[in-house]
Design a binder for these strands. Structure first.
Lengths: 233, 233
DNA sequence: ACAAAAGTGTTGTTACTACACCCATGG
DNA sequence: CCATGGGTGTAGTAACAACACTTTTGT
């Protein structure tokens, strides 16, 4: 078994870490928080934050604990498990499984992050370590799907927002043009967003003041559960 | 750390197993293959087949290897990862993570299974061991969602089928009435099924001979990718 | 008055559901 | 010729996209 000789010879059970792809819309682009590795393997490449479990801890609590060192946990508005990667050669010379999470941070917050971490646009990733590039792209696909049939936008939008702002968030995450007009009607009819009654003052060039909205809940709800084959009645 | 004292005191990293909820439509009901435990804990309760990884093996290959001892692997038409369960007390006295898979066996096959395993209707589960009852129900929800927006029916239907037969499969998995008329049009328009040109002879009571269909591919394809918020044009 | 930004009304389309009706076979 | 099971035709509908139009502001 040559590939286990360096570190793990004799080991009968794999190591296990939790990772997170933390997304935020920054500068009108979907970005992910990456950490620049200081050690081999993959020194200088960018990797997802995470680390090992300690006893009596779930994977979810573990990734939240590790994230607390990179980004304030209270700022992660949504966290969900993506899957577990188990290719034997995903980590050179080390048998390690990784369970990856998708984390979302609302727009407008600027978390204090350590100097060796940086936000990177998901559609322009740098060289990534291990299989982390694949994981980031998988996380984006999960997010794109859920934007369509759930209220997950609450975790990317700021607490209150105009519809133009919400459209910008959706466009950044989906990667194509979205109509604010129709987005409003979809989310209102589903009961996902509600008007606050406030208005946002227009910019220096004038314009009608925008209504201010908020998401009704800050927990994931599937608002359009079945695409087709709905139950009768 | 009282809960780790029996087996794992001093262990710094969790054990890991792969499990599978293998579903098949039998007697017009969605059923799952369960194994009756002969040992404590949960002696006499029913559990999902699976087991530990060996070095140089992915989770997927591991669960296929374990299933080969319960049900012929070639009969599993579809396999996908559901998630990893990590509650510290999910296994009494033992720190163990479990990655669960959904497996589907086409209708009509009757795999030879060992005497300590049995098929159980998913909507009438017996007492289950560990968190396996939760996993089975989660697997059913995953299946129900995918039946709606993908061609996953190929893995539950027999190789060729009439539309009445396919409707029965969908009804068993979804748990509500489905119209064969409309099911046909949905799956034909999406290009998921195609007519073979053959016909099925009617039963003793007569009736028009049924057209015979097949699924075009035996690989999962998302046939209705976005419920709403489709890309423009 | 006019440009800018936001909101509303309306039409058309698609992809379904529901149901009436028609077709082919066995007894 | 009728019961049985399968297939087709068609109307109704919900949820959306597209776009013209209206409203409210700043200069």
């Amino acid at each position: 078994m040559p590939q286990f000789s360096t570190v793990d010879s004799g080991r009968h059970s794999p190591a296990h870490i939790a990772l997170a792809a933390v997304f935020q819309v920054r500068d009108a682009r979907l970005q992910v928080l990456l950490w620049e590795r200081g050690r081999e393997p993959f020194r200088g490449a960018w990797s997802l934050p995470g680390g090992t479990l300690v006893p009596n801890e779930t994977l979810e609590r573990s990734i939240l604990r590790h994230l607390a060192m990179k980004v304030d946990v209270r700022e992660v508005a949504h966290l969900e498990q993506l899957g577990t990667w188990s290719e034997p050669d995903r980590h050179p010379g080390h048998w390690e499984l990784a369970t990856a999470y998708l984390g979302l941070v609302p727009r407008g917050i600027d978390p204090r992050v350590p100097p060796d971490t940086r936000w990177h646009a998901v559609d322009d990733l740098p060289a990534t370590a291990f299989d982390h590039g694949t994981i980031v792209l998988g996380a984006r696909e999960r997010l794109r799907g859920k934007l369509s049939y759930s209220n997950i936008g609450f975790a990317l939008a700021s607490e209150t927002f105009t519809l133009a702002e919400l459209r910008d968030v959706y466009e950044a995450a989906l990667g194509y043009d979205v109509s604010a007009t129709n987005l409003k009607r979809i989310l209102l009819r589903r009961g996902a967003i509600e008007a606050t009654g406030e208005r946002r003052a227009p910019g220096p060039a004038g314009g009608r003041p925008a209504e201010v909205f908020r998401f009704g809940t800050t927990r994931l709800e599937v608002t359009d559960p079945f695409a087709v084959l709905r139950p009768p009645m």
